[in-house]
Design a protein around this nucleic acid. Sequence first.
DNA 1: AATGAATGAGTTTTCATTCAT
DNA 2: GATGAATGAAAACTCATTCAT
Lengths: 216, 216, 216, 216
Amino acid sequence: MPRVAAARREQYAAGRRDQILEAALRVFADKGFAETTMDEVAADAGLAKGSLYVYFPTKEDLLRKLLSRFTLLPELPQLMDSIREMPPRKGIPKLVTQIWRRFRERRELARVVVREIHSNAERARIFNEEVGLRAYRLLADYLAVWMKRGDLKRADPIATAQCLFGMLWFFLLSQELMSGKETHPLSDQAVGKVVSQMFLAGAAAPAQLSARKRGR
Amino acid sequence: MPRVAAARREQYAAGRRDQILEAALRVFADKGFAETTMDEVAADAGLAKGSLYVYFPTKEDLLRKLLSRFTLLPELPQLMDSIREMPPRKGIPKLVTQIWRRFRERRELARVVVREIHSNAERARIFNEEVGLRAYRLLADYLAVWMKRGDLKRADPIATAQCLFGMLWFFLLSQELMSGKETHPLSDQAVGKVVSQMFLAGAAAPAQLSARKRGR
Amino acid sequence: MPRVAAARREQYAAGRRDQILEAALRVFADKGFAETTMDEVAADAGLAKGSLYVYFPTKEDLLRKLLSRFTLLPELPQLMDSIREMPPRKGIPKLVTQIWRRFRERRELARVVVREIHSNAERARIFNEEVGLRAYRLLADYLAVWMKRGDLKRADPIATAQCLFGMLWFFLLSQELMSGKETHPLSDQAVGKVVSQMFLAGAAAPAQLSARKRGR
Amino acid sequence: MPRVAAARREQYAAGRRDQILEAALRVFADKGFAETTMDEVAADAGLAKGSLYVYFPTKEDLLRKLLSRFTLLPELPQLMDSIREMPPRKGIPKLVTQIWRRFRERRELARVVVREIHSNAERARIFNEEVGLRAYRLLADYLAVWMKRGDLKRADPIATAQCLFGMLWFFLLSQELMSGKETHPLSDQAVGKVVSQMFLAGAAAPAQLSARKRGR
DNA sequence: AATGAATGAGTTTTCATTCAT
DNA sequence: GATGAATGAAAACTCATTCAT
């Protein structure tokens, strides 16, 4: 077999896989995994039902691939790089704003994640390790640096990072996925501000505060 | 029909309902609602499948009753009463410790809630209004009081409350429901401390800080 | 649970199982296992498709149970007992006649057996051990006795038994299952006679022949 | 079109057809016709699935061609010729040995034949007439000659022939296709001997026996 | 009230066949 | 001719719900 043809074929197959995964994301987000039939996925993807099975051996496999392919924050590494040299007082608000924007854009995926991850212990474990832990570590590395430099209180950096993600995740759940917008709407600015303030003032070293005070 | 007999019968029926709901909670937490069969619920409850239908007309109804019967924080009102007169510096750590203990005790219910709430937009809305909003308001009332008294920064009290719940909820998810205990274990004290500190320092009015400083 | 009720229920279930197995035998014999749908089995049994799955977990299991439940010669042990004391010259013709009658009565089962046994190595092994070998041994025991007594030539009794079954099985295949009746019909008497003669004269000890001769 | 090119093309196509038929024989023998997919045939043949359909319009057609192309005993006519002039006492053991060798060599085909022939009444009829009956007649002709010459008992020559094929066929089934080799193994010599003896002594004219006796 | 056998609509999965390249 | 992606009809299997006992 000529290598070129094989490569082209693989490229084509990858496109198909994406097409199916995107359709699956839409319909799973809408109705939930168990409540969605393969017919519906196929219809949304514009393919015949049988074609799904050419690319994914089972429905469960389709979900698994979906959860591992679409990451909630694929650009987190770059984001962290871009604020690496900023002190938290400037970096955290920027980070919070960016993460919040991405979370909102991907609320459909978030809906699938929040639902499916907890229906199966194995799925939850994989997600925690492959997605969660990585994100915590990226942020924790940044925090650890600024803890050393004295801009942040010394504390468990992973746990501190989880506080930040926790607040943002919770606002995503309540505002975007649970009709919180109707009962207590918050603008993007408001979310960014409340989270940044809560995190920053909390993590800021008292030394700095007094320093500023003294500086008056 | 003698009233006594009717009352006894109702008591008996209530017992049966509980028996079934508890079984449902166990198996739904383990495998998820859609992946669990009524046979499994019946087996766990020690009843015949048909008996479930004597007490709950449909499987969906069983879930609904489950979600409304078992509340994640039924004792929140009393909890708030007990700290009403404590300033945040003392009240918040106590509150955090208590909520965290309840969350952990009810992680099975949490697993069901987190999953099922998002599989249906209507359910999510109802949950947000009947459970979420009530909890936020209870805490927000407390926060508003102490904002007025100058112990806390003035800010949206609902959003501020959501920050606290957000952190606790996220630690519940990651530590208890997603094998976070294996990848980055945190003791109950550690969770309580990191959340209280983050919240308190973040929400504390600068005035108080300076006041305390001045007072020295 | 009262033991009586459980026993009665088991009896009832056994009846259902038989009902389904008999239907399966009919339709499998007619169209072959792979070509038959569970709908057809259900229709023939007068039950709903789902009911089949109450009693047999898979289609393959239904076939397996069918092959091991319906034996081609369940009465072979009694048959062998009934001729135990007859010398082969009298016993073999009787045996041949009886086996042939049973074979013909059960040609539907034979058709299923002959088809399905060879489509799967595991099935074939099980059948050989559970059905074939047992039958060979029963006949071989009888033959071994009369070999010792000098009425039959000394030879491998199992192989000798297989010769007898081989001839009868082949006549069953060709006469009953392959329209041999149209191309070269043989009466039951003719089959019995040719097989008995072939077997007897072949297995008869030369000593006996000469003895008979001498006796003239 | 030049005749040469057409001939070359046909030769090429014939090669392809063989390639596919041989692959089909292997996989059908292994898993049975219905349980085998065209993908598996293609993979075994080293071709793409679509290519099979260039040469065989349907899967069923592939089976038909397979059954008619590969005969179990294509060399039976020559074999009969070679023993024509031998008396049964010499000819039958030679014939038995030769048939047994061929049967064993083609046990894969036998496995397919034995299974597929019985899954359809029409197929069974055709096979009986085109393969079975021809074989019986070839042997029966030989037997009839030696019956006339007094070396064999007078009897239905077709039925007598079927006895011989029956025994050999049955040993093929049990030894080669049903793991009989594990439960009661027989050497080629043993099979040849037991079948020849059974047939010969059984078919030998008593007159000859007494003649031989007398002759001593 | 309690049971569990029976049901059948609904779902996943398979795979022979087609056809554009 | 050769390919293999796409198809969709058909089949196995599931399970919430019903109902006679």
